[in-house]
Design a protein around this nucleic acid. Sequence first.
DNA 1: GGAGGGGTTAAGTGCGGGTTAAGGGCAGGT
DNA 2: ACCTGCCCTTAACCCGCACTTAACCCCTCC
Lengths: 224, 224
Amino acid sequence: MLTLLLVEDDLDLAQTLVDYLDLEGIRCDHASNGMAGLELMRRGHYDALLLDLNLPRLDGLSVCQRLRTDGNDTPILMLTARDQLEDKLDGFRAGTDDYLVKPFALQELVVRVQALARRRSGQAQCLRCADLEMNLAERSATRAGQSLKLTPTGWRLLETLMRASPAVVSRQALESAVWGEEMPDSDSLKVHLFHLRKAVDAPFPTQLIQTVPGHGFVIKGPDP
Amino acid sequence: MLTLLLVEDDLDLAQTLVDYLDLEGIRCDHASNGMAGLELMRRGHYDALLLDLNLPRLDGLSVCQRLRTDGNDTPILMLTARDQLEDKLDGFRAGTDDYLVKPFALQELVVRVQALARRRSGQAQCLRCADLEMNLAERSATRAGQSLKLTPTGWRLLETLMRASPAVVSRQALESAVWGEEMPDSDSLKVHLFHLRKAVDAPFPTQLIQTVPGHGFVIKGPDP
DNA sequence: GGAGGGGTTAAGTGCGGGTTAAGGGCAGGT
DNA sequence: ACCTGCCCTTAACCCGCACTTAACCCCTCC
């Protein structure tokens, strides 16, 4: 069963979409402005994002860009009335996967979103890097077969790093992935990273979590 | 560098597409009927398939279906004049990833196919000049296969130079790219450039970073 | 011959990052 | 309602590296 996030400020349209998707057996959360959508994306995990472009508080293109710079690679489908070539190119430059011009047939939306999700589902509910494994569904993590004990924040950190791997995640991206907009005053990221390393790396010979000085952190691949 | 397969029986259109994609730095093989396309797909490896629907010998929908039942999950983009909803739904049911109605803008084709390929290979964005290569996502740089050790400032300098290449970057532009508004009092750019050269150029016979007296600095192309 | 732009080198320092400990809030159990 | 334990925040400390700075040198062009 798919779970989507719809970010759309036209409440009538949003209701129509959510109802129709429900009939097709697709769950769909809803946010009515850009900031709320971004926040939900950072917290939860969705199979795809349906994104309007004309949004209050934070426009769709910015939402898309921010997610991508966070290292979030959830499939994105932009829904918009802007039908000019330049608009489409801007959308793809911002990192969207598909672009559907309003008005559109609901059935086309469904098959397109299914095509996106199908491609992603290959990655399934399990993240892996070397001998480190995370089972999203069971919310359990193991390294070399041994189960790891993670705090909630540690979990979010590790998930963000593993999703991005082998790409580097900047400090800023990590912080916004964990805390969203309201970041703690002091630099508590390093403390959490310290504890995470103690849980994930300390008992083992190879250190998977590595520092990229002046920029951020990586988890070593391979991750197929 | 991407490699695509185009299956299209209109030879004029095919030639136009292949030429345009070449300009964009995308290689593109071509087959003019369904059977030949299927054969090439089974033999070689492509980053994506551009598939016409009206084809002699074996129509596009069948090609798509057969590939999917083969277990081939190469991204497919259907190109066709059929613009009816039912046609699109048939396309997605057959297992395509995207569906573009003729006539279309060449640029839209390019960004869509790039979006598909990006998702499949997760291939990171890369800057390249001669044998020097920068992987933005992994934050790693190599020259002639050897990995380079760069400081944060060195990295920013090199990135700026490579993005601009083969254009010259003025001192001022370099400084503002690295430090933004608050530039250091003294001329520390030259010190950083010295260290950068030691990391990038010193161990190699050809010096990529070159001075343009009185103006700034360049990195030698080619950079596609 | 002098001046200025650029290259080279070395020294001090400040900041980013690792480590540790202490305090507070929240939840679950008694 | 109180206690207990966990987890998150904050702050303080240390270390090492990278950035700044300044000095000197060379070359070229007035």
